[in-house]
C-alpha cells in the first residue's frame, strides 16, 4: 500500500494563444513539466501566487482538462488511458471542491438534488434511499437536513461551500482536490470551513490536495507542501520541514510575506514574468536576490531526496532565517479560530 494514490509525471499543459484570424501566437505555459506524488491518507498543499498554474494542475490531475504531455496515475491506473465512460465511472473516487461557492452550484437545482446527483450517477444508493443519505451528508457538513428542499441562492457563501463539500463527498471519494476552497469566503467563516475540512479529512481518511495561497491554512492542515512558480514546482517536502527550513529563495520570500511574522528575508521585487515567455534558465532568476550567471542559463532540476528544491544554489545559500512566531500560536487563522469556535456550527 505504499504506492501513492495520485502520481503525476512530467505533466504539461500549454494553452495556445490565437490572434483574431486564428493563427497561433505562442502559448501560455500554465503547467510545464510537473511531477508529484500524493501518498494515501495525506494532505498535499500546492501553493503559489495566482497565475502560477496551480488550478490548472488540479484539473489536469482529475483529467478535467487534457494534458499535452505526461501521465496521471490514480491508484495505479493511468487516467489518460481510460475511455470517456470509464473515466466518468472513476470520478466517484476523485472529487473537486471549487473556489467560488456562488458559481459552483447549479442555480436551478435544489440543494438536495445537487447532493443526490453523484449518488444517482454512480448508483451508490438504492432508488428511494437518496433522501436519507443526503440528510446525513448535510448534517455531516453542519447544515440542517431540511436544507435539502432549498435553493442555492438562499444560502450564504459559507453555507454554499458546505453544500459543495457535501456534494463532493457524496460519492465517497478517496481523493479530493480543493481549489482554493476558502479564499472566496468571508474571513469570519474561513476558519470554520477549514476546521470542517480538517475534520472530514481526518474522519474519512481522505487523501486531499489543497490548492491555496494562504500559507496559514496550509500550515494548519497540510502534511506535505509543493511550491509552484510559473508552471513548475520549485520546492517540495514535508510541511514542517519546508516551513522550518525553506531551501528555495522563492519559498523563503513567500513565507516572509506572511503578515505577522517577524522574519527578515530579502524581499522579492517586481512582478511574476509572463507565462507566455518565461525567463530562460531558472524561471525565478529575474526576481531572485541570489541569482548568478548559471541561473540565467541553465534551468535547475528539482533535486534533493525527500525535501526537493529546484535551485542551483540550494546548498550554498545562507541558512534560512529562523521562523519564529510573532506571538505564540499567533497567526491570523489561529486567532480567528479561537474567536469563532464557540459560535456554533452553522456558517
Amino acid at each position: 500500500m505504499n504506492e501513492p494514490l495520485l502520481e503525476l509525471r512530467d505533466l504539461r499543459k500549454h494553452f495556445p494563444l490565437r490572434d483574431a484570424l486564428g493563427r497561433a501566437r505562442g502559448a501560455v505555459r500554465a503547467v510545464d513539466g510537473v511531477s508529484l506524488a500524493v501518498a494515501r491518507g495525506t494532505v498535499l498543499a500546492i501553493v503559489g501566487e495566482s497565475g502560477c498554474g496551480k488550478s490548472t494542475l488540479g484539473r489536469l490531475a482529475l483529467r478535467l482538462i487534457e494534458p499535452d504531455a505526461g501521465s496521471v496515475r490514480f491508484d495505479g491506473e493511468d487516467l489518460r488511458a481510460l475511455s470517456p465512460a470509464a473515466l466518468r465511472a472513476r470520478r466517484r473516487d476523485m472529487q473537486l471542491i471549487f473556489q467560488d461557492p456562488f458559481a459552483s452550484l447549479d442555480p436551478r437545482m435544489t440543494v438536495g438534488a445537487a447532493i443526490a446527483e453523484p449518488l444517482r450517477l454512480h448508483r451508490i444508493v438504492p432508488r428511494g434511499g437518496e433522501a436519507s443519505r443526503v440528510a446525513e451528508l448535510l448534517e455531516r457538513v453542519g447544515l440542517r437536513p431540511e436544507s435539502a428542499q432549498r435553493w442555492p441562492h438562499e444560502f450564504s457563501g459559507g453555507q454554499r461551500q458546505r453544500i459543495a463539500i457535501a456534494r463532493a463527498l457524496a460519492s465517497g471519494p478517496r481523493l479530493v482536490i480543493g481549489d482554493e476552497p476558502i479564499s472566496a469566503l468571508d474571513v469570519s467563516v474561513q476558519a470554520q470551513v477549514v476546521n470542517l475540512l480538517a475534520d472530514l479529512i481526518r474522519d474519512l481518511g481522505l487523501t486531499f490536495v489543497l490548492i491555496s495561497h494562504d500559507l496559514g491554512v496550509v500550515r494548519h492542515i497540510a502534511d506535505r507542501v509543493a511550491v509552484m512558480y510559473l508552471g513548475s514546482i520549485v520546492e517540495e517536502g514535508a510541511a514542517a520541514t519546508v516551513f522550518a527550513a525553506p531551501r528555495h529563495p522563492y519559498t523563503r520570500a513567500l513565507l516572509a510575506a506572511v503578515p505577522g511574522r517577524g522574519i527578515k528575508a530579502p524581499p522579492i521585487e517586481g512582478d511574476v514574468p509572463s507565462p507566455i515567455a518565461p525567463p530562460a534558465g531558472c524561471r525565478f532568476h529575474t526576481r531572485c536576490p541570489h541569482a548568478e550567471a548559471l541561473c540565467r542559463e541553465q534551468p535547475p532540476i528539482l533535486a534533493g531526496g525527500d525535501h526537493r528544491a529546484a535551485c542551483h544554489l540550494q546548498d550554498r545559500l545562507p541558512p534560512a532565517p529562523p521562523l519564529q512566531e510573532a506571538e505564540p500560536g499567533g497567526d491570523r487563522l489561529r486567532r480567528l479560530q479561537a474567536f469563532f469556535q464557540p459560535a456554533g456550527t452553522e456558517a
Binding site: L62, L64, A85, R88, A89, R90, R91, R92, Q95, L96, F98, D100, A103, S104, L105, D106, P107, R108, E117, P118, L121, H122, A164, R167, S171
Partner: peptide
Amino acid sequence: ATDWVEAARALGNPPWRLGLVHVLPN
C-alpha cells in the same frame, strides 16, 4: 465555461446529461 457545469462534469455526468439537465434549464 461556468463552474457548475465543470462541477457537473467532475461529478461524472455524461455529455447528454450535461446538456439536458445542467445547460438547458439554465
